[in-house]
Write a protein that binds this DNA or RNA. Structure first.
Lengths: 291, 291
DNA sequence: TTCATTTTATACCTACAGTCCAATTATTTC
DNA sequence: GAAATAATTGGACTGTAGGTATAAAATGAA
């Protein structure tokens, strides 16, 4: 991704945030970014595609931060989850990306809707998994109900706040409030043995989320392809190492964990940043999966 | 409201439900309802206005049903609240109106957004009030947090369900599930003495909700104006009675309660239905306020 | 019948997303 | 530095949409 494209993305994001997605015309973006229509459609096949690029960026970045935050921390500590949830919230909020999500939930564009649905499902699946980390396997059956409750309340509160005041929202307090509720909801829900979302739905959500492909083969293949397309650089060397380590019969997770960070950092600000972030996330997922 | 206009509303609603608001063009409505563009814009000043008319209809109808359901029931019974919440849910669901709400939350139309915001606030305020009915004044400070939690979870679950399966959703089960949670959340929230929404925000919500005007004067005035514009009919007689009863120094609520129902029913299907429903709702609010 | 209102049909306006393309400007590559 | 390749430009063009304007026709009430 070249600087020009990055500029366009940045400009578009700014405009979308300020004036809303619908209300921002492509012409507005062209004017603001000082590019021509041809260039825009050279980068993105449509306005929707442009929005998706923006959202993808934010998504992977927060994914990354979440994982980094957890390094060396106790996954069963509710406070860690609280902070992890807060990361996406504050990212979205600082850049006010959340409204964009909602703007578009009922867009007439099939692809866009599917994209957001998948993001949503991933978030739910992730929270559910983390709840199991904290409250143990007992909660497993109800984990999605709980995740849905947390997500629902937080999202809703955000909307209320935004619509009723311009004061900055203390997202940390919001998340903590909900986490505190969980302390009493979870034991009760286990004891009452009631759940709302059937196992059927849960499976559909997990399928729909199609969590980042983490089979060793696919990952190695993708990483190799990425490395091949790279000019000689320190990043390429990291990448090459990752390919080799991942290809071995028993990859050393602690090595992967260390190198993948350097790998990602090597591409920060470069044309390959986004791809590197995506690949890093995949490696992360892989490490977690096999841990 | 004449039959023609009703037909247009019905047709538009159907199309909006089937294909979504954005995806339904005005031309589609014209074709389906066999009217011309001029007629449409004679009835509604815009597409948004048309949608608002549809939503208003549904809103007042469910408002009405909720109040009727509560007649003679114990307001402190959680089951009653559960059923009342369910009314709007099932109304929206049968007619699948909820997606329409969401479609438009981030519309670029200021008026439409304001309209939906107000509906939202009213619902929250109503739930909060009902929670106080059930759990007593102790919950008052936290009532909006709880209402927001209920609303948020239910709304969110609805979205999840709709996006993941076509099976009909058991809304009763959903609402009951949440009500059950409240049994443990409420005592805990009182004990912990934490709330998220400040009294400041709550006040803003209540202001924004501008609950239906229920001062005696305004109500009498409106009712009188309505009755005056009526041809001789049984409905007019009911209306006249209501005016007199409301004007008296101490209106007999049990009489109002009885007559207002007949009043509304008298206009069912007529040109005056919507106005009658609105006035009925106002009288209902008045009765409750002074009880 | 007459007069007023409603409805119709159509042409028109503006705004927008998206396509196409020939001319121009940068960047590689030798 | 010249030639080849790629990126950029900018405007003309298409199609769709919401909304306006209006003259003619239909309808309804006195």
């Amino acid at each position: 991704m070249n600087d020009r494209k990055k500029l366009v993305l940045q400009t578009a994001k700014q405009l979308f945030i300020e004036n809303g997605f619908q209300a921002t015309s492509i012409q507005d973006i062209l004017n603001e970014a000082h590019i021509s229509k041809g260039t825009f459609y050279n980068y993105f096949s449509s306005k929707n595609e442009c929005l998706m690029a923006i959202l993808r960026d934010a998504y992977y970045l927060s994914f990354l931060h979440r994982n980094e935050l957890a390094i060396g921390k106790d996954l069963s500590d509710p406070q860690v989850l609280s902070e992890q949830i807060h990361i996406r919230l504050s990212m979205n909020r600082e850049q006010n990306l959340l409204p964009l999500f909602e703007t578009v939930v009922h867009s007439s564009d099939e692809e866009l809707r599917e994209f957001l649905k998948q993001m949503h499902y991933r978030e739910l699946a992730w929270i559910a998994k983390r709840l199991v980390d904290i409250y143990g396997n007992e909660i497993k059956v109800y984990a999605f109900d709980c995740a849905s409750m947390m997500f629902g309340f937080i999202q809703h509160s955000l909307g209320i706040w935004k619509s009723s005041t311009v004061e900055p929202l203390d997202t940390k307090q919001l998340v903590n409030f909900m986490m505190q509720r969980m302390e009493v909801i979870v034991p009760d829900i286990i004891q009452q043995n009631t759940c709302f979302l059937s196992q059927d739905i849960v499976e559909r959500i997990l399928t729909g989320a199609e969590m980042y492909p983490v089979t060793q083969d696919v990952l190695v293949e993708k990483m190799q392809a990425f490395v091949d397309g790279l000019p000689k650089s320190i990043g390429k060397q990291y990448g090459q190492f990752l390919v080799e380590e991942l290809s071995s019969t028993s990859p050393r997770n602690y090595m992967l964990e260390s190198v993948v960070r350097s790998f990602r950092q090597a591409f920060e600000g470069s044309d390959f940043q986004l791809q590197a972030v995506e690949l890093s996330a995949a490696v992360w997922s892989f490490i977690h999966k096999t841990e």
